[in-house]
Design a protein around this nucleic acid. Structure first.
Lengths: 259, 259
DNA sequence: CAGTGGTCTAGACCACTTA
DNA sequence: AAGTGGTCTAGACCACTGA
């Protein structure tokens, strides 16, 4: 069958010939989907770019347009592409807006999302702790970037964040200390480092504010604050960012929707 | 055209006839979906029951099997039905297992979910506070059930829960005080009251343990604990349960996945 | 074996965008 | 007007389940 480099197996081909069932069978649309993810993940198609139409892809892969459509619809649900009737299908591009909408889950007392500011308190390279190396699936003591920043909401300091990034995936990371960040980090990851975050797992606990929390968040020592531990994952499913947030919930809440 | 009671409008019929665009156009599959939701929500098909096959529904509604399929696939994604190849499509039935998996987001230090126990500390009727009435979209001071229960995980008391339910939707609610609950509440809601919870919004803050928290959770007064405020919503989209959980995060975490 | 959902195809037509 | 995705149809065949 068709294809360059990789082969799509039709159901007939994978079906048992000598009576042995094919264990590695995968639907066509799923194979198509993986090919498309490869091209997006590898940067063949860049964020914001339009990808070929359903018919073009169908012709290229030697499948029907409906099969390509099913793959594209799933990619849209995973937020890897954006589809617009009459315009085309585009590789998802993180904008500050979208990034906030998806990955920023702090709301004010009325349930509204505000725009946070971010000032970098510290930015340096260090060696990963054992736990960091495990979570990021790196060698122990591998090099990582360590960023500390303070985020304001409604004029108040609310979130103290410590971010850990593998140096290997984020070469020449440029996050100068003491400056206000105008851009969402996930936008930066995507544009400068080709890393697209598509998922994040968060674990939340209540802790007592320590001296540093107290100083930066303007709360008393021992005040109950939220600690949010995030592991963010890229298109290929690799954990690529750790984020430890200490959050003053005097005037804000962590929001979660269970569906 | 086909149908009993309600009418499905094809695209032609809704299209402009006198040059006026049809503002109320809805795709066929979406109309089919609403009809199916009606039958599930109204109890015509009960939880656990098999519903007619795609071809039977297609014949009944006068649409193609593919159109019914699209509606059913969306209902499956919303967890309103369960589809099994070779068996059929079934109205989703909350089991304790599923209920825990979906709506219980507390994990232990290793990220594992444990089975909680629940002892009812108090169960009574009262009048809704202003806030409760607003959140449940009831008249001020309408009758509600108020349940307080304590949940253990791994032998430790971890969660103190206060649940508020509209008396109108939960007549003859049977939650005796002082007893261990063997059944998940959402299973009870569905089986005894025809209320299926499909979504929940949670807002989380860190607070200091008060005297009652301290007594029941076995922590010191003022210890930082999590406060989780949930509003749970039924099939029709109405808020039907409020749940205020106070959670000791010494050995557990609230877990949230952002996709 | 019959009946169900799952995959795949081919083709028609509609709605929307852009030129 | 051309090109895109969105809806809808009809039909074939596959994979799975249970009688």
């Amino acid at each position: 069958m068709r294809m360059t480099g990789r082969k799509i197996m039709s159901m007939d081909e994978t079906s048992s010939v000598g009576g042995r069932p094919a264990a590695d069978f995968r639907p066509l649309y799923s194979q198509v989907k993986d090919l498309l993810i490869d091209r997006i993940g590898s940067g063949s198609w860049k964020p914001g770019e339009m990808i070929p139409s359903e018919f073009q892809l169908a012709a290229e892969f030697g499948v029907s347009q409906g099969t390509v459509r099913k793959a594209l619809v799933e990619l849209e649900q995973q937020k890897l592409v954006v589809r617009r009737q009459g315009r085309g299908t585009y590789v998802a591009k993180h904008s500050s807006q979208q990034s906030l909408f998806h990955f920023f889950h702090i709301v004010d007392e009325h349930g509204n999302k505000e725009l946070p500011t971010s000032v970098v308190l510290d930015s340096r390279m260090k060696r990963a702790t054992k736990e960091e190396a495990t979570l990021l699936r790196m060698q122990p003591r591998a090099s990582v970037h360590a960023i500390t920043r303070l985020r304001h909401l409604g004029g108040r300091p609310v979130i103290l964040e410590r971010i850990t990034l593998p140096a290997s995936s984020f070469r020449d990371l440029d996050v100068p200390t003491g400056r206000e960040m105008t851009e969402e980090l996930y936008v930066l990851y995507q544009r400068h480092h080709g890393v697209t975050i598509i998922r994040a797992d968060e674990r939340i606990a209540a802790v007592a504010a320590d001296a540093e929390d107290a100083r930066h968040l303007g709360v008393g020592l021992g005040t109950p604050i939220l600690e949010v531990s995030r592991v963010a994952v890229d298109v290929q499913g690799n954990p690529v960012e750790l984020r430890l947030s200490r959050l003053n919930t005097a005037h804000h809440r962590y929001f979660s929707r269970i569906i």
